[in-house]
């Protein structure tokens, strides 16, 4: 099922996003009031929440131009060295910008 992003469509999509996010904010507390969430399920959730980002980024890295790849590589290396998100993101963008000026 697809929704047009013009007019009311965008609003509906945002409301769906908000509702899903609300479920995640309330769900943990709600479930815990009945039964403790097991260690295995916690491990599943925590592995999944990182994997989803990796899954989203992989095609971006494969299909992007070299500027895009350089940006991602720069951000990854900076995160490993500096461990600070904002400078790492800035350096990644800068790398793409510089590469594309050449």
């Amino acid at each position: 099922m697809t929704i047009e992003t013009t007019g009311f469509g965008a609003l509906i999509i945002i409301l769906v996003m908000a509702a899903v996010t609300l479920v995640t904010r309330w769900g943990g507390v709600y479930v815990m009031s009945f039964v403790p969430i097991s260690y295995r399920i916690r491990q599943f959730i925590s592995a999944m929440s990182g994997s989803v980002l990796v899954a989203l980024l992989t095609p971006l890295a494969i299909n992007g131009d070299n500027g895009a790849r350089l940006a991602l590589l720069t951000t990854a290396i900076s995160m490993l060295l500096l461990k600070k998100p904002l400078p790492s993101i800035a350096l990644g963008i800068l790398a793409a910008a510089l590469y594309r000026q050449i």
């Binding site: 996010t21 904010r25 769900g27 507390v29």
Partner: peptide, 14 residues
């Protein structure tokens, strides 16, 4: 996708 990314909120609530 939104659910998977925000699933960590479940853990925070718990």
């Amino acid at each position: 996708t939104i659910f998977a990314i925000n699933a960590r909120h479940l853990l925070m609530g718990a």
